[in-house]
Simulated scan of single mutants.
Amino acid sequence: MRNLKSIAVALVALFAFTANAQTKKINVSKSGIVWTGKKVTGSHTGTINLQDGALVFKGKVLKGGTFTVDMTSINTTDLKPGQGKESLDGHLKADDFFGTEKHKTAKLVFTNISGKGNGLYTVTADLTIKGITKAITFDIVVKGNTASTTLKVDRTKYDIKYGSGSFFSDLGDKTISDEFELKVNLVW
């Protein structure tokens, strides 16, 4: 009987939370992700598209979020056609990197959110790339109907070891940084 009472209390609390929560669907055409990958001799930048996403609020307080990224949309923007753009885009989509033929999407699901004041939150989330899920922590700023963040992702945690000095010696100036950066701007 005591367990039934505990379950009933939990269900009422869950219903109360979801009844007061508002899900804000992300406008993927107005939102964007810019990536930067660095190597010893420079860096490359590009874009990648959100497939869908939503943030959950209780009042004006951020309470949750989930996003799906279209990995097949990886696009290098600092190179022009004929200057290596096609080669780099193809390599990023190949199994050496993101393996987009098998892993068409990546997913980010908020698991813990801590408010810091003035619309600033620290988020811990599960990030899934190439079928591998790891926790990642980042700050996000929410202002009006927008949110922005910069994430640093260690690609080697997702079995992306190509050109990593952490796994291969004698790479010299062909060494690629283990971390890449994602600048995310969300609009709903």
Rank of each mutant, 00 (worst) to 15 (best):
14 L>S: 10
14 L>K: 05
14 L>I: 15
15 F>Q: 04
15 F>D: 06
15 F>V: 05
15 F>W: 10
16 A>I: 15
17 F>I: 13
17 F>E: 08
18 T>I: 07
18 T>E: 11
18 T>A: 02
18 T>M: 11
19 A>G: 12
19 A>D: 09
19 A>F: 08
20 N>P: 08
20 N>D: 14
21 A>M: 05
21 A>W: 00
22 Q>W: 00
23 T>A: 01
23 T>H: 04
25 K>F: 10
25 K>D: 09
26 I>C: 10
26 I>Q: 11
26 I>L: 02
27 N>V: 14
28 V>A: 13
29 S>D: 15
30 K>H: 11
30 K>G: 01
30 K>F: 02
31 S>Y: 03
31 S>R: 00
32 G>T: 03
32 G>P: 03
33 I>M: 13
33 I>T: 02
35 W>G: 11
36 T>F: 06
36 T>S: 08
36 T>M: 06
37 G>V: 12
37 G>T: 06
38 K>C: 15
38 K>R: 11
38 K>N: 13
39 K>T: 05
39 K>A: 02
39 K>V: 00
39 K>Y: 13
40 V>R: 07
40 V>G: 12
41 T>W: 05
42 G>W: 13
43 S>R: 02
43 S>V: 01
44 H>K: 00
45 T>W: 02
45 T>Y: 06
47 T>C: 00
47 T>P: 03
47 T>R: 00
48 I>Q: 10
49 N>Y: 10
49 N>A: 15
50 L>E: 05
50 L>C: 04
50 L>Y: 09
51 Q>W: 03
51 Q>P: 07
51 Q>N: 15
51 Q>F: 08
52 D>G: 11
52 D>R: 15
54 A>M: 07
54 A>L: 05
54 A>C: 03
55 L>A: 01
55 L>R: 05
57 F>G: 01
57 F>D: 04
58 K>H: 10
58 K>W: 00
60 K>H: 05
61 V>W: 06
62 L>S: 03
62 L>I: 03
63 K>G: 06
63 K>Y: 00
63 K>A: 07
65 G>S: 01
67 F>V: 14
67 F>Q: 12
67 F>M: 13
68 T>A: 13
68 T>P: 07
68 T>I: 07
68 T>N: 11
70 D>S: 12
70 D>I: 04
70 D>M: 06
71 M>T: 12
72 T>A: 08
73 S>N: 15
74 I>E: 13
76 T>W: 10
76 T>F: 09
76 T>H: 11
76 T>M: 13
78 D>P: 15
79 L>V: 04
80 K>T: 12
80 K>I: 14
81 P>C: 11
81 P>H: 03
82 G>S: 11
82 G>T: 10
